[in-house]
Design a protein around this nucleic acid. Structure first.
Length: 829
RNA sequence: GGGGGCGUGGCGGAACGGCAAACGCUAAAGGCUUAAAACCUUUUGUCCCCUCGGGGACUUGCAGGUUCGAAUCCUGCCGCCCCUACCA
């Protein structure tokens, strides 16, 4: 290890101590100042912070410190998403209680964040496993229960056999558990749900009103909500006046192309329709076959569609034609009505099924390119469609729906793909669901005065055999809050995504003990102005938090509609071709980087190596480069301390030509860095600009010897350049800049300085270089006065020695002059 | 299958439709050193010419188009990545 690096260990410890002692980042509501709420997604306390985690904190800290310097009152809090399975699994494997495991990790990770020098207001720290935290979501649970926004229902849920718990739809990826990767199996179970579907339309609409969010996250949310508009109507079962099947379609205009209909295999009407004994048997066999397929097989691409033809027929109400009825695995009970009209001509799935089963295909939309032997799903003129003939798709949809409505046969209908959020977890380390089951009163919510329903400490954790809480007699056996008789507690706990759905509100008044959050504090700080986190939460946490915020609003607790005004989704940190993670064994530890190079260097490298939204490849040589740069800054400032301290604090009003040029570089850098941070978060180019300034500073210094004729101009400019560099670099590398700033004799923190503003006078140019092209190729350059007359620039360009040979013996067709930039001479032979 | 994104030197990456390759890394040569490290200087897209000052041609996945001018806009291919998926 080199011993030539600047003394980062001492410096970092020193300034972290000062920030902590002076409570520099502690904030209070101050209506006189503009607020800025800067938030990074809080971590799960899983162990140790590595360089894969550092990126998000480096970005958050940069923005927070920048906003401080811009005069904002900045809320920048940190806490712990402390409930969850890894704590419980650690308990099962190593016999450590989840409380101990979790708090030990929190202590270690907190110390890491402090040694990283992130500007958190540590007085606002929260841990979601603390009863004083989850008490409030238990209260909200009860209020949601009262309003029907929380409910319990037996239903088929996603079951992870390895985690031994239910998963929400959002937590199943490719038929596998998002956490452990085990194959998810369906299971019928009594489970708790939050009625997120009641907010589907609002969640979707607001996607258009979040301009600070990345488009791809909004797209993912829109797709997840999956709105589709169409019509619902009944198909009468032929010869069975008592029975009809409700179907949903987005293409009511194609109804004359229906050649069969399909029910989901588990559709309840199947049992009523099928009465014949032999047919019942084949239905049972078919159902068994379908349910034997795993989730993964079911969703595999180009899997043949399986179906069984039933004896019954159904009647198309539009033309009174009876068509055959099937049950088939490509129709899902969970969407729409679990039954469809099949239109093979205009639906690819129906086409495939019809071909396999030899069913007729009718063309009801005139193909613009003729018959292609495939389903056609595009727009076109209706044919073979009775009263719809000749109409385009949109008009035909409307007319078909009107026809159904006017006869009382159906309705217009909007469906969403979004399902209610299953929040029951059959595990220990989570917030208990605050309800009881009383023999007399049935299901009863716990009384508010009895909250929190605390998680008992003494429990046997085996990872098997249902909810661990069920075996804790002292927890289960309780008193009914309604009748005072004996009652059993609910033993499921809440999904940990419930805690993370409102922690940003808790930070506004983290010690408030008479409610979830203090109204005025939340009104002042919320919404979050800049949220920063990984793309993996695009439809998980970010959708749940939006929903939960709207529920709190409708409960009258807050006035905000959306929790996060702007979102920055940072890319992953990659090493050896994979995301840096403990499980892959490719982590670079934060402790190691901090020991070898210092926290400032590690942060600088991660901010410099790639723009924040892109993935970042870890590179051992790259961090050497970042280290080299900071050492260069350090050595320069230390070597010039006396000269800078003795320098006038104002640059002389009249400067030599090199002095003017250098001063322009200083102020252009201010402009570039400010714009790069504000616009599009181009932190990498902001750092590049600062590096260029430092390069220019070194060139200026060596070209203008000390004690020369313009000694005071030189000193003043070096001073201005150094001070500017320290201010601009401060949010990226806070410790080294604080130290150098104080070595220059300043008493006040860098972060209490005003962010520099470019001096328009310094930016003034008197001359510009104009590129001269001939037929689009650069042939020469002109130095002309700023805003020189176009005619004059044209004459100079045509007369230029370098340009003339390219124009001679050719005819000048025209000359394009872009002021202060370029001349293009267009010629012809 | 659907949706979104991307494609620029040896590498990470820069470029409001206007000088492609900023900044950094790597590599090479030189300087300082007894020596190494560190540090400093120079060179570093490809090819060609050269009187050694420089000059020229080509170059942003491929093929077209729009434009005085395209890495950037449009069309069609090729390749890669992410999301999503019998959603009727």
């Amino acid at each position: 290890m080199s011993t030539d690096r600047y003394p980062f260990r001492e410096i970092e410890a020193k300034w972290q101590g000062i920030w902590e002692e002076t409570k520099q980042f502690q904030v209070h509501e101050d209506p006189k100042r503009p607020k800025f709420y800067c938030l990074e997604m809080f971590p799960y306390p899983s162990g140790r912070i590595h360089m894969g985690h550092v990126r998000v904190y480096a970005i958050g800290d940069l923005l927070a410190r920048y906003k401080w310097m811009r005069g904002y009152n900045v809320l920048h809090p940190m806490g712990w998403d402390a409930f969850g399975l890894p704590a419980e699994n650690a308990a099962i494997e190593h016999g450590v209680h989840p409380v101990i495991w979790t708090y030990e990790n929190i202590d270690y990770m907190r110390s890491q964040l402090k040694r990283m020098g992130i500007s958190y207001d540590w007085d606002r720290e929260v841990a979601t496993c603390d009863p004083s935290y989850y008490k409030w979501e238990q209260l909200i649970f009860i209020k949601m229960l009262e309003r029907g926004l929380a409910y319990r229902k037996r239903s088929t849920v996603n079951w992870c056999p390895s985690c031994q718990t239910v998963l929400a739809n959002e937590q199943v990826e490719d038929g596998r558990c998002w956490r452990c990767g085990s194959e998810v199996t369906p299971r019928d179970i009594d489970a708790w749900f939050f009625k997120i579907t009641a907010y589907a339309e609002e969640l979707l609409e607001w996607c258009d009103r979040l301009p600070g969010w990345p488009e791809r996250v909004l797209t993912m949310q829109r797709n997840w909500i999956g709105k589709s508009e169409g019509a619902e109507f009944d198909l009468k079962v032929d010869g069975r006046p008592d029975l009809s099947i409700r179907v949903f379609t987005t293409r009511p205009d194609t109804v004359f192309g229906m050649t069969y209909a399909v029910l989901a295999p588990e559709h309840p009407l199947v049992d009523q329709i099928v009465r014949d004994g032999a047919e019942r048997e084949s239905v049972a066999r078919f159902r068994a076959e379908v349910s034997r397929q795993s989730e993964i097989e079911r969703t595999a691409a180009d899997r043949p569609k399986r179906g069984l033809r039933l004896g019954a027929k159904v009647v198309n109400p539009f033309n009174n034609q009876p068509v055959p009825l099937f049950i088939a695995d490509y129709v899902l009970m969970g969407y729409g009505t679990g039954a469809i009209m099949a239109v093979p001509g205009e639906d690819e799935r129906d086409w495939e099924f019809a071909e396999q089963h030899g069913l007729p295909i009718i063309e009801t939309v005139k193909r613009p390119d003729g018959w292609t032997g495939k389903a056609y799903t595009g727009d076109g003129v209706k044919i073979n469609s009775g009263f719809l003939d000749g109409l385009p798709m949109t008009e035909a949809k409307r007319r078909a729906t009107d026809w159904l409505v006017s006869r009382g046969l159906g309705t217009a209908k909007v469906n969403y793909r979004l399902r209610d959020w299953g929040i029951s977890r059959q595990r220990y380390w989570g917030a208990p669901i605050p309800v009881l089951y009383c023999e007399k009163d049935g299901m009863v919510p716990e009384a508010e005065k009895n909250l929190p329903v605390a998680l008992p400490r003494d429990v046997q954790l085996s990872g098997k055999g249902g909810s661990p809480l069920a075996s804790v007699a002292s927890f289960v056996n309780a008193t009914c809050p309604k009748c005072g008789g004996p009652a059993k507690r609910e033993t499921d706990t809440m999904d940990t995504f419930v805690e993370s759905s409102w922690y940003f509100l808790r930070y506004c008044s983290p010690r408030y003990d008479t409610g979830m959050f203090e109204e005025n504090a939340a009104a002042y700080w919320m919404p979050v102005d800049q949220y920063i986190g990984g793309i993996e939460h695009a439809v998980l946490h970010l959708l749940y938090a939006r929903f939960y915020t709207k529920v709190l609003r409708d409960l009258g607790l807050t006035k905000i509609d959306e929790p996060f005004m702007a979102l920055l989704s940072q890319g992953m940190v990659i090493k050896d071709g994979a995301k840096m993670s403990k499980s892959k064994g490719n982590v670079v530890s934060d402790d190691y980087v901090r020991e070898k190079y210092g926290a400032d260097t590690g942060r600088l490298f991660e901010l410099f190596a790639a723009p924040p939204e892109k993935d970042l490849e870890w590179n051992d040589q790259g961090i050497e480069g970042a280290s080299r740069f900071l050492n260069r800054v350090w050595r320069f400032v230390i070597a010039h301390l006396e000269e800078i301290k003795a320098a006038p604090d104002k640059v002389p009003s009249s400067l030599s030509e090199p002095g003017r040029a250098f001063r322009r570089t200083i102020h252009e850098t201010i402009q570039r860095v400010t714009e790069d941070i504000e616009r599009e978060f181009h932190f990498n180019t902001a750092i590049a600009a600062i590096m260029e300034l430092v390069n220019a500073l070194q060139t200026f210094e060596s070209a203008n010897a000390e004690g020369g004729p313009a000694a005071s101009e030189r000193a003043a400019l070096i001073r201005e350049a150094v001070e500017t560099t320290l201010h601009l670099l401060g949010p990226f590398c806070p410790h080294v800049t604080e130290e150098l700033w104080s070595q220059l004799g300043h008493r006040e923190s860098v972060f209490k300085q005003r962010w520099p503003v470019a001096d328009p006078a310094a930016l003034q140019k008197t001359e510009v270089t104009v590129v001269v092209q001939v037929d689009g190729k650069v042939r020469g350059r002109l130095v002309v006065d700023v805003d020189a007359a176009e005619d004059r620039v044209r004459q100079l360009a045509l007369g230029d020695d370098k340009v003339r040979p390219w124009v001679e013996r050719r005819r000048v067709e025209k000359v394009v002059v872009v002021p202060n930039r370029l001349v293009n001479i267009v010629t012809r032979a």
